[in-house]
Amino acid sequence: MDRTERFYKIQKMLSDRKLVTTEQFLKELEISRATFRRDLEYLRDRLGAPIAWDSDLGGYVLQNTPGENLSALPGLWLNEFEIHSLLSVIELLRSIDPEGLIGSQVNPIRERLEKLLEKGDYSAREVSRRIRVTTLARRNTPTKFFEVVAHGLLARKRLQITHYGRQDNQLTEREISPQRLVYYRDNWYLDAFCHNKDDLRTFGMDALEAVTLLDKPAVSIEEADLRAELESGYGIFAGTKHQIAKLKFSPFRARWVAREVWHPDQKGEIQDDGSFVLSIPYSDERELLLDILRQGADVEVLGPKPLRDAIKTRLMATMKIYD
């Protein structure tokens, strides 16, 4: 057990039992008294952990300030996912209009997150300089629309929206019941029940041309139904009528794709020649087409035939540009 694991174990023991003796620590952590003493000093002095000795009870306790939870030990012992999550949240909060209503409220939250980094062995500035979280093809959403949508979402009110459809280059008026906001591939989307279509729809927040809050109660969809309808397809596109895309990646590209997650229900198999066959469900081919085309000559669509034909049509149209 390394030092980081011991820190978490010490915190958990104190949180679960309220009082822990020295002998209990030594036995469960399997360390010497000298090591335990060094760990305790580091937790108290470097990380500010409120661990105190209670002479009356004969053990260690957490002394939390009233109204504030200090039992969670801060510090920089973060794994890959935690570093990405923490820095992503900080960058997201920084991007909020600092002069706006929300920006002024979240600045203290961002500052506290940055202090989490300061509590560890390295400064927040050093972490931000050495570890970068970058975005690609991010589309801006007008702040005024975002605020109205968020209010309707949480207040459970319907919205009247003007939506720009990129597929047909048309504006449409919709009355919707917002269900949830989704941050996906560096862009915001709104899952909603569309009363005009009598069905669930996903709208790109950047495609909203106008938003009005209506004095009508929103229809609420059960979370399980939302997941079944909106999360079972491929990418951001919804649908429960699935097909299985079968993609064969070259031995070279397989070195990367074999470790990637394209869909929670995917299946993959390494072939004898080193190639990799990936099977993924999809209900709408649009986003899947783009992801396949990004692989260039390192992938072949084995099936179904309509998907293979769609890729062939796209490639032939591309070739005409360069002929």
Rank of each mutant, 00 (worst) to 15 (best):
36 F>R: 02
115 K>H: 15
36 F>E: 04
109 I>D: 04
132 R>L: 15
101 L>K: 09
124 A>G: 05
60 Y>R: 04
124 A>L: 06
34 A>W: 00
84 H>N: 07
48 G>T: 11
85 S>A: 09
62 L>Y: 15
57 L>P: 05
123 S>H: 07
141 T>Q: 01
99 E>D: 07
108 P>C: 09
22 T>Y: 03
37 R>H: 11
19 L>E: 03
95 S>E: 12
43 L>E: 03
60 Y>L: 08
34 A>F: 00
27 K>N: 00
137 A>H: 13
137 A>C: 06
69 N>T: 12
34 A>M: 00
78 L>Y: 09
64 N>S: 13
38 R>A: 12
26 L>I: 06
21 T>L: 01
83 I>N: 04
40 L>T: 10
146 F>K: 01
45 D>A: 13
23 E>L: 09
44 R>T: 15
28 E>K: 03
22 T>W: 05
147 E>S: 08
123 S>P: 01
17 R>S: 13
59 G>P: 07
118 E>Y: 14
72 A>L: 13
80 E>V: 05
42 Y>V: 15
73 L>W: 11
62 L>T: 12
91 E>Y: 10
29 L>H: 04
89 V>I: 13
110 R>F: 12
63 Q>F: 09
118 E>C: 15
113 L>D: 04
65 T>W: 01
100 G>C: 00
16 D>P: 00
